[in-house]
Design a protein around this nucleic acid. Sequence first.
DNA 1: ACAGAATCCGGCTTACAAACCAACTCACTT
DNA 2: AAGTGAGTTGGTTTGTAAGCCGGATTCTGT
Lengths: 155, 155
Amino acid sequence: MYGFNAVTLDKKGRLLIPARYRDDLQLQKHNKIVITKDPQYSSLKVYASSEWEHISKKLESLQGLDPIVRNLQWTILGNAYECHLDVYGRMLLRIPTDLQIYSEIQNQKQIALVGMGNKFEIWNIKNWEMRQTGGPLSTEILDVVLPESIKSMSF
Amino acid sequence: MYGFNAVTLDKKGRLLIPARYRDDLQLQKHNKIVITKDPQYSSLKVYASSEWEHISKKLESLQGLDPIVRNLQWTILGNAYECHLDVYGRMLLRIPTDLQIYSEIQNQKQIALVGMGNKFEIWNIKNWEMRQTGGPLSTEILDVVLPESIKSMSF
DNA sequence: ACAGAATCCGGCTTACAAACCAACTCACTT
DNA sequence: AAGTGAGTTGGTTTGTAAGCCGGATTCTGT
C-alpha cells in the first residue's frame, strides 16, 4: 500500500479509506486499526492492528531510563487510539481533538493519505504539499543523538 | 534494456512502453510494475515488481527517525503507484497527475524513456537533453551528507 | 422519567473516473 | 505483397467514492 491520495471528509466527518489501501491492510479479519502521533512531524500514523502489535511490543521492551526513549514511548504509546471501520471501509473521524490539532486537520475538508507500505500517514494536505515541494532531500535538523537501542527501529 | 527512446504521452495521460523494455523487465511472474518519483531529479522511475519489493522492503526497514531517511521514504514510497499490463501484454501506463507535474511531462507530446538495466526512467525530453549536454536542470542534487544506512543503496 | 432533540451509523444512489476491450493503422518480416 | 505483431486511439463497462437519507441511539432538559 503505497502512494498519495487526497481524501475528503463527508458531512458527518467520516473518512473513506480508498479500496486499494483497504485491501493491503489485511483488514478482513478485524476491522481494527490504530492511530497515533508521529513523534517528529505534525502528522498522524495509522497501523493495521497486526503491525501495531509488533511496534508497540518492541517499544515497550526498550529500557525506559533514556529520556529520548521515554519521549518516544509517551508520544507513540500514550497517544494511540483504536479505530474501527464500517462495512464500507469508512472511518469515523473520531480522532481525539488533540490529535486533530497536532496534525492540523481539524475542520479540513481535504486530507492527505500517504501509503508507506506497512503503515500510512495522515497529513494536512497543505503541509504534505510543502514537504513535497521543499526539495526531495531537504533536511530537518535532528538535534538529538539517538540511543543505540532505537537505531535499528522503524516506526 | 538500455538506451534512450522518445515516446508519446496520449490525451488520457497514458504512456505506451515499447515492447523491448517490457521484455527485458522479466515481468513473467506478476504483470505488475511500480512507478515513483526520483528522489534527486525531476524524473520518474519505473521498476518491475520484483525489483520494487527489494527496494521498498529495504527502505521501510531503515531507521525511520533520521530526517534524510524519512525524506527518502516519503518521496519514494509515498509517491509509488502500481500499474498493470493489459490483456495483450501491452504496457500502457497511466501516469498520475502529480507525477506528471513533478517530472514536468504534463501536456508534453514527446517524453524520454531511458533504460537503465533493471529499471527505466521517464524524463521531460528537454531536461534529458540538458543533462546530456551539461546544462542546468530545474532540480539539482542537494548537498547533504547521507547517513551510512543508505550509502550502499541503489534506487 | 420521559419527550424532544441532536447525533450517530448503516444503507442506497448517482456521478465519475479508471480499467477494459475492440478496432484500426503502421511497420517489419518472410 | 500478405500476414503478424506492435502501437494507437476511442468507446464501453465496471467499480469506487461521495452525497444523501432515514432509522436508531444517545443526550439533554424539564
